[in-house]
């Protein structure tokens, strides 16, 4: 890879070595947790207490503060998984494989949360828990994609070939992402169109918007913490017989 400057490739090489990555994760997790808790506290306080009641939806709209960030994260985590899959396929980077598979349960969790909170919001506002509209259906397919990644990885004994299979699945499934995003524009759906991403003039009041953005950033930090925790476990599982794990065991004993 001569087109990558030497210090950059050295950095990636070092960071991607399992013991180095493990130590780095340990160093970052407390800081990430502190930032996450601060953002979460501010977001919840702003969203549940400070933000005014919606003139149309009453207080039911407050579900937005978890529903929308979770839905955003369900797409974001999938894209991250697909990128890791690409890196794993092209460069055979072990750490990319580990990050891919560590992301899957977290993404599945966000997708599940988006579906359930949406349902709990839909009942009082639309009068139904569920409709087979384009947005809801494509999000449900996303959940199945995540579950597919998890079970495919679990089904193949050799973890290197499992990671290859899963990388391909993650890359193929990425076609669903634009479908989810544009579903509210392409089809006439019950689900309302985007309110925030119209950056020129979001159709949401600032006192409602700020907590929403705080929660969205908080969920990003949560993802970082959760994926590092899961990656630490996956690395350990894969490298139980390596020297760095043995050294760590001796230190703990």
């Amino acid at each position: 890879m001569s087109w990558i400057p030497a210090p950059v490739s050295r950095f990636f090489h070092r960071t991607s070595s399992p013991p180095h990555f493990y130590a780095l994760a340990d160093r970052f997790i407390p800081w990430l947790t502190a930032i996450f808790l601060l953002l979460l506290g501010a977001g919840l306080y702003g969203g549940l207490y400070l933000a005014p009641t919606d003139y149309q939806q009453g207080d039911s709209y407050r579900i937005i503060y978890i529903h929308v960030p979770a839905a955003w994260m369900s797409l974001f985590v999938y894209v991250m998984m697909a990128i890791m899959g690409g890196i794993a396929l092209v460069w055979r980077m072990k750490l990319a494989e580990v990050m891919l598979i560590s992301s899957a349960p977290i993404g599945a969790g966000f997708t599940f949360v988006a579906l359930v909170t949406g349902s709990l919001w839909g009942k009082p506002m639309w009068g139904t828990w569920w409709v087979w509209d384009a947005r809801l259906t494509s999000e449900l397919i996303l959940l199945f994609l995540y579950l597919g990644v998890i079970s495919l990885y679990g089904a193949i004994e050799d973890k290197r070939s499992a990671a290859r299979a899963v990388s391909i699945l993650a890359l193929v499934g990425v076609v669903n992402i634009p479908i989810i995003h544009y579903s509210v524009e392409w089809w006439n759906t019950l689900h309302q169109p985007a309110t925030v991403s119209k950056l020129d003039k979001p159709s949401i009041h600032i006192t409602m918007l700020v907590p929403l953005l705080l929660m969205a950033i908080a969920f990003k930090f949560y993802y970082l913490i959760a994926v590092l925790q899961a990656a630490k476990l996956e690395l350990l599982k894969r490298e139980t017989s390596s020297q760095w794990v043995k050294n760590m065991l001796e230190k703990q004993a």
Binding site: G58, D59, I63, V116, L120, A226
Partner: peptide
Amino acid sequence: GGYAAYVWPAYGVTALVLAANL
């Protein structure tokens, strides 16, 4: 505002799922 039966379960499920993944 009368929506406690929808808002709080939504927050509860979210907390449970996120905590479980950590």
